[in-house]
Amino acid sequence: MPSLKQRLAQPEILIAPGVFDMISVKIADSLGFEAHYMTGYGTVASHLGLPDAGLATYSDMVSRVSAFTTASKVPLIADGDTGYGGLLNVEHTVRGYERAGAAAIQIEDQEFPKKCGHTPGRRVVPLEDMLRKIRVAVETRDSQDFLIVARTDARTSLGLDEALRRGEAFAEAGADVLFIESPESVEEMERVCRSFDQPLLANMVEGGRTPVLSGTELQALGYSLAIFPALGFLAAGSALREAYGALLNTGDSRRYSGELYDFMDFSRLMGFEAVWDFERRHAEDKKS
């Protein structure tokens, strides 16, 4: 299997679904995606039941990175927020995420407390502050295959010109992948792609500020990587609300009209076959 760095060097766009808990990781992994994206919004919501507003700590998130990479066979791109503090925190975060098995860490230029990139009220730090974080991240990593994804949220508050200026500076500081958050039209996305030669990330959030395009359309624009961070938890939330609502209203799970994952197939997905095999082998030992 190629490393994330090697895969991004290929001409075909890389599609990464957002994973937010162990079930989503195992399902995505079973379907054959080439990479996964640990969504901060979904992971904080699933793990802590809180909004993605700077409330999760480094310890909260690095434990999720470790769990997700253990359950997956493909590279994980992990949201690292703002690095969880100052420059020393960025160093600690990069080391921790790399040790936990992530293939890349995403660091953004928002002021603390940060917010989800498609919600209002986001403000960015001075450019030089973010450049220091990128330089520390690049200096800290042990392997050149551990990628630094640098995200700017400047488009919403300061305009696209400033976002592009920051992206250029991020590249000069050593970022491997550029993430210009929240362009608001296809024309803006085209301009982003014309402005850079290195890998670009497109963030496809259903209901967000950026038009949602297909992988084919994004590749034609010039993107190398597309993440779909919200699709999984929005789909799961809708299905749970419908299923639980049917149970509440009727007292009968059979009245739920949606599709259910087959119980035995789900048990196999969770690894029960290894448990069954273990029990069979040791039952035979007891007989002998």
Results as ranks from 00 to 15, higher is better:
153 D>L: 11
120 P>R: 13
76 L>I: 11
176 D>R: 03
22 M>T: 10
12 E>S: 13
198 Q>D: 00
217 E>Y: 05
240 L>V: 13
193 C>M: 07
165 R>I: 04
201 L>D: 12
158 L>T: 00
56 A>M: 03
16 A>C: 10
281 R>L: 04
209 R>L: 15
122 R>I: 14
167 G>M: 05
280 R>Q: 11
283 A>H: 14
160 L>H: 04
219 Q>D: 04
204 M>K: 02
90 V>Y: 01
12 E>H: 10
244 Y>N: 06
282 H>N: 11
137 A>Q: 12
96 G>D: 12
75 P>Y: 02
255 R>C: 14
73 K>H: 10
99 R>W: 05
97 Y>P: 02
220 A>S: 13
215 G>N: 05
230 A>F: 02
135 R>L: 10
168 E>T: 06
204 M>A: 15
81 D>T: 12
55 L>H: 01
185 S>Y: 09
88 L>V: 15
57 T>S: 15
7 R>P: 01
67 A>F: 00
288 S>W: 01
27 I>Q: 01
28 A>Y: 00
48 L>R: 11
131 L>H: 14
193 C>R: 08
136 V>S: 12
260 L>H: 07
118 H>S: 14
274 A>P: 00
284 E>T: 08
160 L>E: 06
25 V>N: 04
164 L>C: 02
37 Y>N: 02
114 K>W: 06
83 G>W: 00
4 L>Q: 03
77 I>K: 05
29 D>L: 07
261 Y>S: 13
127 L>D: 11
102 A>H: 03
97 Y>D: 10
226 A>P: 01
81 D>G: 04
170 F>I: 06
8 L>K: 09
105 I>W: 08
197 D>E: 14
75 P>W: 04
136 V>G: 10
93 T>H: 05
122 R>D: 03
